[in-house]
């Protein structure tokens, strides 16, 4: 799988351009092929308007998350990857704990990478599904701003949805 795209690249773009992305959280740097990085609309806009220097600083995204983002972009920039391959690769990328997923969805939003936003949001939704709302609060660190009376009233409105739930 690795050799085919390599040949294609050599044929169409003999001089491979690269960009350096730098996490401003932990100063980690990643050298990435330009066509890989351009899947981010945010980066593409910067490059198109000549705002991108040699090193593109990426605020609020850690190196760990940036590595995942780049992995996603590399997979999707590979023209010989089949739909099935991509599905499997995406599933691997989002097989993470909830905190990583939230960081990842924020990164996908900031960098404007539609596909990554889609798979990460779906994965987060899948992990909320079937959870009692108290667990949703706890796991996701959501503060309950209802008074007990208010919460009981909202719940009473939709009794049927809570059948079999605490």
């Amino acid at each position: 799988m690795a050799s085919a795209p390599e040949n294609e690249k050599n044929a169409s773009a003999p001089e491979k351009k690269t960009l350096t992305l730098k996490s401003m959280i932990n100063n980690e740097e990643f050298v990435v092929d330009e066509h890989v990085a351009l899947q981010s609309v945010t980066i593409k806009n910067m490059v198109d308007s000549d705002c991108a220097g040699d090193v593109i600083p990426v605020p609020t995204i850690s190196g760990e998350i940036l590595a995942l983002v780049i992995e996603y972009c590399k997979n999707h920039a590979n023209p010989s990857a089949s739909e099935d391959d991509l599905k499997k690769a995406d599933a691997g990328i989002v097989a993470k704990d909830i905190y990583t997923l939230i960081d990842l969805v924020l990164a996908a939003n900031f960098l404007d990478i539609k596909g990554l936003l889609e798979v990460t949001s779906q994965k987060i939704a899948d992990s909320i599904k079937d959870l009692p709302h108290q667990d949703v609060r706890e796991i996701f660190g959501v503060e309950n701003d209802y008074t007990p009376e208010e919460e009981a009233a909202v719940r009473a409105e939709h009794d049927w949805a809570f059948e079999g739930f605490p």
Binding site: I25, N26, T60, S62, E64, I65, I98, Y99, T100, I102, D103, V105, L106, N109, I124, F140, G141, V142, E143
Partner: peptide
């Protein structure tokens, strides 16, 4: 080191 975000931090 990663900053810890909760779901409430999402836009």
């Amino acid at each position: 080191m990663s900053i810890s975000m909760s779901i409430s931090d999402l836009p």
